[in-house]
């Protein structure tokens, strides 16, 4: 995604966020547009936030939960998607466990397709809302900020989308976590530095983004125990003290309190975790407006 597109999305989200503070949270912009969310993996905040974003903009949203759909009868992704399109959907928002599945869908469907997370690849709307949150807390710019991303980078699509977006916008990204969970090629991305010790990544940071330890993807024994992970890589008060005084702490949720982040840090004034959720709705409203609001939609 080019920098100019990211900037347009961030700017549009900045304008739309005001709607969320209104008593009547509704604008008529996407009246008559229909949006379907198709989630092959569990999700609370991403799905709900896309749906609420759609509703605030007056689009009609429906959601398909795979467990109660024809997918359990063996319907293929392609056929499910074509069926949804045949019902007149203007947009399909999908999460799938296979990397690249959204790209596949975008090629076979005429309607817009939004990636709400694909495998270990990307989670673009999360990357954008994280950038939006940082911008709002750091005076509107991302350039030159030191952003530490801590934890399981290997399995994290949130980390990938953050790294790609932030480095393009000129931020200085530092990652740290167990060596088995840091992809070796990560340092080839300009602007990214990998550290073995969490302390080195956090030192002097403007932002600390703590990743969720994805227990469902840890069957391969890539680190010894959760307790050891927490002791060596968990973000606690002592480690956070190494960052700048006005550090912003983020977490994409859902949190494993006491594992990757202590409750003390998660509930501190530095944490903006709930605000990230609010900003997620604003970012998704911007995406829906930009994709469905124009002439070709």
């Amino acid at each position: 995604m080019p920098v100019s597109d990211m900037q347009l999305i961030l700017e549009t989200a900045g304008s739309l966020k005001e709607i969320l503070t209104r008593e009547i949270k509704k604008v008529p912009t996407l009246r008559g547009k229909s949006i379907v969310t198709l989630f092959y993996e569990p999700s609370t905040r991403t799905r709900t936030s896309f749906e609420m974003a759609g509703k605030y903009m007056s689009a009609d949203t429906s959601s398909i939960t795979v467990a109660t759909s024809s997918v359990v009868k063996g319907e293929s992704l392609k056929d499910t998607a074509l069926t949804i399109q045949a019902m007149g959907a203007d947009m399909v928002i999908m999460r799938h466990s296979v990397s690249g599945s959204c790209h596949f869908l975008a090629r076979i469907l005429d309607c817009s397709v939004v990636n709400a997370g694909d495998g270990m690849h990307e989670h673009p709307s999360q990357g954008l809302l994280d950038m939006f949150t940082i911008q709002q807390h750091k005076g509107g710019h991302l350039e030159g900020l030191k952003v530490a991303i801590i934890g399981d980078v290997q399995h994290s699509r949130v980390a990938r989308s953050n790294i790609w977006g932030l480095t393009k916008m000129g931020a200085d990204v530092h990652v740290a976590g167990p060596a088995t969970l840091i992809p070796p090629e990560i340092e080839q991305i300009p602007g990214v530095t990998a550290h073995d010790r969490v302390e080195d990544a956090i030192r002097g940071a403007d932002v600390v983004n703590v990743l969720r330890l994805q227990r469902e993807r840890q069957q391969k024994g890539l680190f010894p125990t959760i307790r050891e992970y927490s002791r060596i890589y968990g973000v606690n008060r002592e480690r956070l003290a190494l960052a700048k005084d006005d550090v912003t702490v983020m977490h994409p949720g859902p949190m494993n309190r006491g594992v990757e982040i202590t409750s003390e840090v998660a509930d501190s004034d530095h944490a903006v975790i709930e605000e990230q959720v609010t900003n997620g709705v604003a970012i998704r409203m911007a995406l829906l407006y930009l994709l469905l609001g124009g002439a070709e939609a």
Partner: peptide, 23 residues
């Protein structure tokens, strides 16, 4: 007041107008 979201010609405009803040 930014009226972009309330325009009646959104679906016919060639280039999509940028939404600005309402304050």
């Amino acid at each position: 007041l930014d009226i972009t979201l309330y325009r009646d010609d959104l679906s016919t405009l060639a280039s999509q107008p940028v939404v600005h803040k309402t304050e």
